[in-house]
């Protein structure tokens, strides 16, 4: 998978899955724009990891739920790289995955949902609005969304988070239908439980073991496991795929 000469923008790339994706793209020769919200040090580590992998990387701080910030992020990326070939929407609103302390349905108010929808769908929407004109001008581009396998199998009902990700999948499919005739592909990767990440640190060993024991491939995902399908969907190998959701959870969900 050669991404030499290609530019990839990964949101939420300072840590966890985002960092693994950014590093994997860099390893295939891409120039990577490493978006992060606050953790400058972590972003610098991602950049260093990308460079060590043989690619080029450039950090840009931006709160992608802020439309103006998203536009600035894209402008800075274009200044550095000239164009954006691949957008990976990985960022989402802060969330703690803890089966024991999660809010149950009757404990949620609408603001909890709104926060997650903003973090997932609104952020993706703002960024896509900023990136899409360039892709349409070339009739070429790939967008990959990060969702969750919980939309298909809510092993733990993280209502607000999972609802927002389900909306994101719907958003991606509609976008795929609209932009397919214009040369831009949109696909989604839906990981299972990924450990370790900052967000999943609250998921205890027993829970991870329980999921692993029901997973055909007998473990939970690592961040690096997610990168492969993302790169695939962004690559010409997936040139005839759009509007798809790939579950990357060791076979827990089969769809």
């Amino acid at each position: 998978m050669d991404f030499a000469g290609k530019t990839v923008l990964v949101t939420g790339a300072s840590r966890g899955i985002g960092r693994a994706i950014a590093t994997a793209f860099a390893g295939e020769g891409a120039g990577v724009v490493v978006n992060y919200l606050a953790n400058t040090e972590a972003a610098a580590e991602t950049v260093a990891a990308c460079e060590a992998a043989g690619g080029d990387a450039f950090p840009v701080q931006a709160d992608v739920t802020d439309l103006a910030a998203a536009a600035r992020l894209v402008k800075e990326a274009l200044d550095q790289f000239g164009r954006i070939d691949v957008l990976v929407n990985n960022a989402f609103g802060p969330y703690r995955f803890d089966p024991e302390t999660r809010k149950r349905h009757w404990e949620l108010d609408w603001n909890d949902y709104q926060r997650q929808i903003d973090g997932s769908v609104k952020a993706a929407h703002g960024l896509i609005q900023a990136v899409l004109p360039g892709m349409l001008a070339r009739a070429d581009g790939a967008i990959v969304m990060l969702a969750t396998d919980l939309v298909a199998r809510p092993s733990v009902p993280y209502h607000d988070y999972t609802t927002a990700k389900a909306a994101l999948i719907g958003y991606a499919r509609n976008l795929a239908a609209e932009t397919g005739p214009l040369g831009v592909r949109v696909n989604t990767v839906a990981p299972g439980l990924v450990y370790p990440t900052d967000a999943s640190r609250g998921t205890k060993q027993a829970m991870r073991d329980a999921i692993a024991s029901q997973t055909p491939l007998r473990r939970v995902a690592t961040p690096a496991d997610i990168a492969g399908p993302v790169l695939f969907l962004a690559s010409p190998w997936a040139r005839f795929m759009t509007g798809q959701t790939l579950y990357v959870d060791g076979g827990l969900v089969m769809a």
């Binding site: 000469g5 530019t7 120039g31 080029d56 274009l78 550095q80 000239g82 164009r83 070939d85």
Partner: peptide, 11 residues
Amino acid sequence: FARARGKTPRT
């Protein structure tokens, strides 16, 4: 012209 080809001093 260069930018449209993804060619910048960085790349």
